[in-house]
Design a protein around this nucleic acid. Structure first.
Lengths: 128, 128
DNA sequence: CCGTATCCTAAGTGATACTG
DNA sequence: CAGTATCACTTAGGATACGG
């Protein structure tokens, strides 16, 4: 298990990463997906989560640990090694996240098109 | 259709309203649910959405209209009347929201318990 | 390698008051 | 009735630098 992650799996700027939902904060759902394949080290998570700073990743993981979504295991080695893993509770989010991604695949283009049409309409900046 | 809404249906402070997901901003999912039963007037929405201010409700509805989730119909009457209604696209969110609420019903207690246990643990404020 | 410590800004939200 | 106009505030999130 735990095959290498695509280091560019998530790019929050890229619309294809757009999710209609947010679970917890901005990164939580992505972290869950990153941990789907098994336990990961801190720096293994930083790659796929394009642009996340260590501070924010720590924050996110701490909050998830607090909520019982992940476990944190620190090995007393040098250099240090810390691994994160989904709990059973954390894994229950996977189906919900999958549903959300399915919604995006099915309907996000329509939403974006509606937005584009609205923004380019003369009425959008006028009389209300 | 359009039976009267429970004026206390949603209280963002109440944990039973807690959602594991957010769709758009803080209120969007609740607005979708409020409109599930049919078209509603502006002030009809303010009751169930406990504590929402008119400014924020307007913001939310405008954003949803822009994204093609609701339609806004203004009748030229006095006193003014404006009705909001879900579009087909907006209705596609209902199943996703239902899935989210089901997750809450099934797993939110466990999450909250994990949080409580973590917060009351002596380790939570100590050595990291 | 795995974080912390500071500092900072932008967005979201709300309170209050006012208007066509 | 259905909004707007201000003002104020909190917090998530990020940039950067440093530490065990």
């Amino acid at each position: 298990m735990a095959e290498p992650l695509d280091p560019e799996m998530f790019d929050p700027v890229c619309p294809s990463s757009a999710m209609p939902i947010q679970i917890g904060d901005r990164w939580t759902a992505m972290v869950v997906l990153c941990l789907e394949g098994g336990r990961r080290r801190f720096n293994e998570l930083r790659g796929p989560l394009r642009g996340i700073t260590p501070k924010v990743l720590t924050q996110t993981l701490r909050a998830m640990e607090r909520d019982g979504l992940v476990t944190r295991t620190a090995y007393d080695e040098n250099p240090p090694r810390v691994e994160y893993e989904l709990t059973d509770l954390g894994r229950t989010l996977l189906t919900l996240i999958a549903a959300a991604r399915a919604w995006s695949a099915d309907h996000l283009p329509a939403l974006l098109e509606a937005r584009r049409a609205h923004d380019s309409s003369p009425r959008s900046s006028l009389s209300r």
